[in-house]
Design a protein around this nucleic acid. Structure first.
Length: 739
DNA sequence: TCGACATGTCATTGT
DNA sequence: TAACAATGACATGTC
């Protein structure tokens, strides 16, 4: 109850004052409605701002106002609606937001009016680096400073489509109204402008195609990024093809050190305090930060030089009086251009503003520190004015402000942008498949840490077999072949008729050791007969099963087909094919094949030994043969595993590179949306502040007053000195926390 | 002849 | 403790 009472006595009072100061019924109490619904009616009474507007039925309802589309009241009404919608939109984290405010500045080449106006409250805007944009804008304003509604429409970017001569002025006005309302509802100009949509689609498509053209990404990444940044798909702004300007426009969304932390806090607080936020912003933020931190080490210093190497006299830095790394207000001009009513209001106190001296860049900045680790604290009650009313508007009052505060968030984001730009060149591929990650994980989670997956390597065959060999007696293609062969009966030591038949068949085709070996195996399984090419390298030296005597006797071709010399050659060849152990076994007259010695289970092996009366030397040799044979297969398996491991690691590296590229793209998107939100808040601040009037109907000086966005969602108009004090207090908190 | 490569072998360790 | 798999290191053979 205490808090409620305090709220009623202080907050509501201030709100009432604030609202009374606003010429129009700006719905600032959106935050109140959920808490104290009756108060809304008490304070404001039924307001159009709370009423659902049938935007496309204005003539009939118009919230009961019955305002004619050409009525001058529509200006205020729609301005209020626009402000309301924008304020309400602030509590949503719109990743790809589609608010368009500024592109219309290109529209009117015809010049015009109020020369003093742009330099008044909008002095900052005229200093934008985008001179080509702001100058025509000024011209537009100068032409019709008091144009009112229609001008406001244009400022909003609601460009009336080319109308035929059949349409009356009223029809045109109505179209403009509807157009503008659609824009107010979040439908950007691109919704209506096919070329804009096309452009944006191209940009998005380009981003998406990045994954398909992964190989070309690294080469074209920088170019694609440049194109992407040069054409803002959402604002339609065509940035000059200069990296610094573009980058600064991005980093503008990134509060930097010299920039007032209070500003960023203020800017983002409405975005973060909203309860309707569909995302867990903090989590997203942390994710983003983690990505940035991960890439922080790869900051391209050259990129930073490019980014911050604003030429001397750069309108951005000079007029905004911001440090080179605080291009926060660069795009102000664009949005100023959209603030028709605001600019008018600003013109009221323009002389005062004009008279203000240009302050240094560090004036209003150290208001409130930011804590990037805590959103609430970061975006707590702070002073908004510092951001939107640069130092030249603040006068000398802030000249004595403390040194620039390090802004973890801004620094991080700035750095992140540098990383991004430098790393975009490194971005390789897209189309990272999350499934691959899980697969990867499984592979690394396996006991051996190795994958015997054979699908990608020549060793696959034996690899898979080797995996099964651990539980059986055979572990490789060659060994399995020999094993199967030995199971038939030891050649030369067995009278197995099958073997004899086989040998006869071999003799019929002419003897070739390797060929005969595999064809014996294929004899059992015709489907595997064809002496597969991949077995060639396997059959290298595994001739344990081929007893020399058996080969000598059984593999002999019919005498009629072979000459005696060739027979000797074949015998020599067989000798060469035999392993040393086979030679030893042959020399020691071991009565069974090496294959049996090696592959028989230990019990059967012992039984086999018990059947024969063997000398110690023979037994020793047999055990050595078994040991070496098993170890040989083990070595083969081991090498296969090594090879597979290398191949898998290669694949993993590729996957990680794809993942990295994807994260980079996501980061770009986040930063872009952040920039857009800041721009929106910026324009809103200017509009709201410009509409504030004191009891005499005069606008407040931005050098003396500032809007403060409290943590509870309320907006207060406070003297700048007070705001500065609060900012300093907020500044100390993170420092104390660090201690 | 030398180096690269494949394969075999030994010694060791862990299961 | 025996049997065996895995693996590093070295040897050997081949090209």
């Amino acid at each position: 109850m205490l808090s409620l009472k305090k709220y009623l006595t202080e907050g509501l009072l201030q709100f009432t004052i604030l609202l009374s100061l606003i010429g129009v019924r700006v719905d600032v109490d959106t935050y109140l409605t959920s808490q104290l619904p009756p108060l809304r009616e008490i304070i404001l009474g039924p307001s159009s701002a709370y009423t659902q507007t049938q935007f496309h039925n204005l003539r009939n309802t118009l919230d009961g106002y019955g305002i004619h589309p050409k009525s001058i009241d529509l200006d205020n009404y729609f301005t209020a609606r626009r402000l309301l919608s924008q304020v309400r939109a602030l509590d949503r984290f719109q990743v790809p937001t589609t608010e368009v405010n500024a592109w219309l500045v290109h529209r009117d080449p015809e010049g015009s009016v109020s020369g003093s106006q742009p330099n008044s409250g909008l002095a900052l805007e005229s200093s934008s680096g985008l001179q080509d944009v702001t100058v025509p804008d000024n011209g537009v304003r100068e032409s019709e400073p008091e144009q009112g509604f229609s001008e406001d429409l244009e400022d909003l970017g609601a460009v009336a489509p080319p109308v035929s001569g059949d349409l009356t002025k009223e029809d045109i006005d109505l179209i403009d109204i509807l157009w503008r309302q659609d824009i107010d509802l979040g439908a950007g100009r691109e919704v209506f402008d096919y070329s804009h949509r096309q452009k944006e689609q191209d940009v998005d498509k380009e981003l998406q195609d990045g994954g398909e053209r992964e190989d070309t990404w690294s080469g074209e990444g920088a170019e694609a990024l440049a194109r992407d940044l040069l054409v803002d798909g959402e604002t339609g702004e065509s940035f000059p093809a200069q990296f610094p300007a573009d980058v600064s426009s991005i980093t503008e969304a990134v509060p930097s050190e010299s920039e007032s932390p209070a500003l960023q806090n203020s800017l983002l607080s409405p975005l973060l305090t909203g309860t309707e936020s569909p995302f867990d912003l903090e989590q997203q933020w942390q994710d983003l930060m983690s990505i940035m931190e991960m890439q922080a080490m790869e900051v391209n210093t050259s990129a930073s030089e490019i980014l911050y190497s604003a030429p001397p006299g750069d309108p951005l830095t000079t007029n905004y009086s911001l440090a080179p790394n605080t291009p926060i207000n660069q795009n102000v001009s664009l949005h100023q251009a959209s603030l028709g009513g605001c600019s008018q209001d600003f013109s009221l106190f323009s002389p005062e503003v004009e008279s203000l001296p240009v302050a240094s860049s560090s004036t209003l900045l150290p208001l409130v520190p930011s804590n990037s680790t805590s959103l609430n604290s970061t975006f707590g009650s702070t002073n908004l004015a510092g951001l939107f009313f640069p130092s030249q508007l603040n006068g000398t009052a802030n000249d004595t402000s403390g040194p620039e505060l390090p802004d973890p968030l801004g620094g991080l984001l700035d750095e992140a942008m540098l990383d991004e730009i430098s790393l975009m060149d490194l971005a390789i591929e897209e189309g990272f498949n999350p499934g691959q990650a899980s697969q990867l994980e499984e592979e690394f989670d396996s006991d051996s840490g190795l994958s015997l997956d054979s699908s990608h390597s020549p060793s696959s065959l034996s690899s898979s077999e080797g995996s099964s060999s651990s539980s059986s007696s055979s572990s490789s293609a060659s060994s399995s072949a020999s094993s199967s062969f030995s199971e038939e009966g030891a050649v030369g030591y067995s009278s197995d008729s099958e073997t004899l038949d086989l040998e006869e068949a071999e003799g019929a085709v002419g003897y070739q050791p390797e060929y005969s070996k595999f064809c014996r195996m294929s004899y059992q399984d015709p489907s595997q007969l064809s002496c597969l090419p991949y077995l060639e390298h396997v059959g290298h030296n595994h001739t344990y099963n081929m007893a020399p005597s058996a080969l000598d006797s059984a593999d002999l071709p019919p005498p009629s087909t072979l000459k005696k010399g060739s027979k000797e050659k074949q015998a020599d060849f067989l000798d060469k094919q035999m392993s040393r152990d086979e030679h030893r076994a042959r020399a020691m007259k071991i009565p069974f094949t090496n294959d049996k010695i090696i592959n028989l289970p230990v019990e059967e092996f012992n039984e086999l030994l018990s059947k024969y009366q063997l000398s110690e030397a023979q037994l020793s040799l047999i055990r050595d043969i078994r040991r070496r044979g098993k170890n040989k297969m083990a070595a083969q398996n081991c090498r296969k595993r090594k090879l597979d491991t290398i191949l898998n690691l290669e694949r993993d590296v590729e996957d990680l590179q794809r993942d990295k590229a994807r994260l980079l793209r996501e980061k770009v998107e986040f930063l872009r949306s952040l920039r857009q939100m800041k721009q929106k808040v910026q324009s809103l601040y200017q509009e709201v502040f410009g509409r504030l009037r004191d009891e005499n109907g005069r606008p407040y000086s931005p050098s003396q007053y500032a809007l403060q966005y409290a943590g509870d969602g309320s907006v207060l108009l406070i003297p700048r000195t007070m705001a500065d004090q609060q900012a300093r207090r907020q500044e100390r908190k993170p420092k104390d926390r660090r201690k």
